[in-house]
Amino acid sequence: MKPPHAKATAAEPSAVNAVHDSSTRSFYEADARARIAGLLDRASFREFVGPCRRMASPHLTPLDQPGAFDDGVVVGEGLLRGRRVLIAAQQGAFLGGGVGEVHGAKLTGLLERAVTERPAAVLLLLDTGGVRLHEANAGLIAISEILRATLAARAAGVAVLALIGSGNGAFGGMGIVARCCSAVLMSEEGRLSLSGPEVIETVRGVEEFDARDRALVWRVTGGKHRFLLGEANLLVADRIDAFADAVLAALDGLHESGDSLVALEREQTRLSQRIADYGDCRDGLEIWRRQGIAEPERLPLLDTAEFLAAAATRGTPCN
């Protein structure tokens, strides 16, 4: 039996299928440029401050680390199923997708462009551990600038979507940025949190968080748990076209105008209730069980469609 994501094959000759070839592939396996190519309409992408500008970080050479011509992030504009979007994709394999001075400024500039260009959305394809430690101060300030620019774009009426389905996920300050977006779209493979499990294990000990226990790490930070908690608005299969579908679904009915007092007071209540309901839990399993999901231990094994069906049965509204 064919797995559901093995639809179009390279043997099919038409141009339409050639497009499907790149869009049905794994989001997780693709690199930054392949993710953009797969998401956007064919040949519609126009890169800003591309590699020929050689805008590499100047802070790496003294540390004997070669820079990258795009400083590990690809930004530009294009069409997603005919809708004009601004898009950014972090290159997770380059220094863990870490945000430095140039990398961060490209993201901030893109978000600022959204205020004047008013695209249908800004898509942030996050693949990062947060601050790039080689230029830590510059990275921290840059993330603060990205955070403010994200909120400013939303206040100006532009939806900003975080797409998280990558190896590094969205950690550190960029995990905070993700939750400042209009919506978060994740795959099961994606992870979203603040401190990496390795950091917690190093500082607090393996009893606090065993970073090598991958199943535990996913039950704490992974896409399924984040969806069940209401942290990810949509959970999609690990296919680039599934993320494209999710972008359209998220934009459908979303009227961005920034956070209102009423919305943030509701969020305050929701986050307080979450601590009241689950504040004594230390594993996703305990939370899922309390949500009334039968046999929660099977959730990690389900494919996305089965998982969403199981998740729909939970009694407690996600908070």
């Binding site: 940025v177 993700a178 939750r179 979203l192 603040l194 917690i200 607090r204 748990h225 986050l271």
Partner: peptide, 18 residues
């Protein structure tokens, strides 16, 4: 640095404050 805070989505709590 705590597993419990990560489990409940500390990044969301920080984002909320911001």
């Amino acid at each position: 640095l705590s597993r419990r805070d990560e489990l409940l989505g500390i990044n969301a709590y920080f984002a909320h404050l911001a």
